[in-house]
Design a binder for these strands. Structure first.
Lengths: 124, 124
DNA sequence: CCTAGTGTTATATGTTACTATTACACTATA
DNA sequence: TATAGTGTAATAGTAACATATAACACTAGG
């Protein structure tokens, strides 16, 4: 996994696990990979994994069991709220960023439309 | 100015100056506020200002003159390219973030449309 | 009971970011 | 020529982040 060196790694791992949960790769009740395995997979130190997991635990999304592993405890309700929240934050971020560059509401929508069309073309 | 504690301050200052230039608050040829004044205005250390300015200098957007100050040397051409690049990066960021949450192209556009409408309403 | 696989915790080390402080180089001007 | 206002650079200290390493606590299975 490639990290943005402008943002703490533990935080990017947290976001990565958010995604795993939201996209269903990790479902309620699932056992997560062990901290040591995650450390290998993401090529970071175990302590860095722990830093991310401890925050997710504090947010009641996962729960550790000594000797067993970490388990997803988030409910479907929690997950859908989390997804909505993250989407909203990202939209807000874009909106704020572009407005700060003096891009109008209309242009923002047009530019995004063009960008998405371009992605579709590049895909081919 | 409020900073995001997940991103280096010097980098956020760099982005701030990008905005000043793109929105015309700083025009080609303009003299910038002194490093000491910027440090006071943004409530950071002079060295942090320098860190940002030295990168902007390396990008040929500004140029320092000993004893005189820092001056905007970017051309209109450079500025419009910079603006386009930043807009593109932000669009790409949103697109990537939402696609990673399994949001479809169509939903992305709809969600943004709704978000912008909501902003307009909240404005009143 | 032993062992392998879990989570948890602690220590030491290195790097980067930021601050505070000081000093130096240069320019304009009174 | 002195002074105030510029940029520049160096030092030292603090904090956060990440690493390496080791040890400890618990669980499951042979």
């Amino acid at each position: 996994m490639q990290f943005d060196d402008k943002v703490p790694i533990y935080y990017q791992i947290k976001e990565y696990i958010y995604r795993q949960i939201i996209t269903g790769k990790l479902a309620p009740g699932d056992k997560m990979p062990s901290v040591r395995q995650l450390a290998v997979d993401l090529t970071v130190n175990v302590n860095t994994i722990q830093r991310a997991l401890s925050e997710l635990t504090a947010e009641n999304l996962i729960e550790p069991k000594r000797g067993k592993g970490n388990f997803v405890t988030a409910t479907d309700q929690q997950i859908s709220e989390l997804k909505e929240q993250l989407i909203n934050e990202h939209l807000q971020q874009l909106y704020k960023n572009l407005r700060e560059l003096n891009v109008s509401d209309e242009e923002i929508l047009n530019d995004l439309g063009r960008y998405i069309d371009k992605q579709r073309d590049d895909q081919k």
